[in-house]
Design a protein around this nucleic acid. Structure first.
Lengths: 213, 213
DNA sequence: TTAGGAATCCCCCTTTTGTGGTAGTAAAAC
DNA sequence: GTTTTACTACCACAAAAGGGGGATTCCTAA
């Protein structure tokens, strides 16, 4: 059976060494390289062909966040497991937004480390509990369809609004849905009344933010 | 020590019973009620004062997703752990969007169940690996600042644009940031040129969707 | 020292929107 | 069988926005 090849970026010498031994002491894991910084990031990856990257967030020179961004650009499928001593929101979010596939605290046990590596390799995303919860909460706020309120827009009104959100002018909307310019204006009046707004712009903002249409 | 009070909604009789015993067999857990449906959802919660809800997604009458929505509306802080036999995207997303704090497969072991309950209670969000990964991916796509392109907008231009996406008219923008109407127009012209758009509306759309400002 | 960017303001003219009406028709609701 | 609604369409006038200029000040970088 092929071992999971892990490439480590960690500036602290002792930790780097201990990660190396930790990984190699697992039957199914193999450390294919360790680096104290991200200077030769791309080369290192190209040369050692890892299955998983273990990346420290706090590093001199290029930090782990930027490193992930680069890795995700050049090797989109290579999962990156972030490790850090901090677990505050901003660190987590930056890491995840940059493209990290998992988030590990350095205080984690050896077994947690090993399991997290297996987990990211197998398509999972190990995260500490609070991190996972925070991610879900943001997910709910930002992605959830959210609104019951469709403001009782009629079919045609929704069509017009949809066209509006594509940046079209009234004339263009008239053309695309094949009604007269004046009819578009009529629909707009009704939309404004229903959304309680008084301009094109406000309608668009409301429609986008509340995910109407 | 107080036990974690768990309220169970599960239509299958056998599973309901086994959950009851499973929970009560744990020293730190206590099943404070089981229900085959969500008919008296609010009352049940009010009466039994649970710390955690264990909710089946597939149920006759009101399904688990809608139930979560209601719970989250009336008891926002009460964590809901969803359990299901399906783990396809749509189930997961609906559940999470509705406000679930965790997602458990019914195939999970007793120990996994117990641990997941403790986990949601302690502010975590237990999810199976692929679910977590999927959530992160969507997170990255939707929430991440994403764009390198800030289109070289200057400070003032960003200010104006920010006001614009609050639905303000040029006049109102002029007032709020204390510059003249004509200056606002000047900034707008520059913004249009930089964003390659030709109207208020288009600028707003681009600004919101690409999370400029 | 000077060229250029950022911010400020003004003018003119055209086009697009916003607001207030009116009104016909067909389908659905009462 | 009448009323409501959705959709259609038009007019008129005012207000706002778009597009073309030009101009001044300040500050920074070449």
């Amino acid at each position: 059976m092929n071992k999971i090849r892990v490439l480590v970026f960690e500036d602290n010498f002792r930790l780097r060494e201990s990660l190396y031994f930790l990984i190699n002491s697992e039957e199914d894991l193999e450390c294919c390289g360790t680096f104290p910084d991200c200077k030769s990031l791309e080369r290192a990856i190209q040369d050692s062909q890892p299955d998983v990257i273990l990346m420290d967030i706090e590093m001199p020179g290029m930090n782990g966040i930027d490193a992930v961004r680069i890795i995700k650009k050049d090797f989109p499928k290579l999962p990156v497991l972030m490790q850090t001593i901090f677990h505050d929101d901003s660190h987590i979010f930056n890491a995840i937004c940059a493209g990290a596939s998992g988030y590990l605290l350095k205080s984690a046990s050896s077994e947690t480390y090993a399991q997290a590596i297996r987990d990211v390799y197998n398509g999972g995303s190990p995260m500490s509990g609070p991190v996972a919860r925070r991610v879900l909460e943001l997910f709910q706020k930002n992605i959830a369809p959210a609104n019951e309120n469709d403001y009782d827009l009629t079919q045609k009104e929704k069509e017009v609004l949809a066209s509006l959100i594509e940046g079209k002018s009234f004339k263009q909307i008239a053309d695309t849905i094949s009604i007269s310019y004046e009819t578009v204006r009529s629909h707009m009046k009704n939309i404004y009344a229903k959304l309680h707004v008084h301009s094109n712009t406000e309608a668009v903002i409301k429609a986008i933010k509340e995910k109407i249409v």
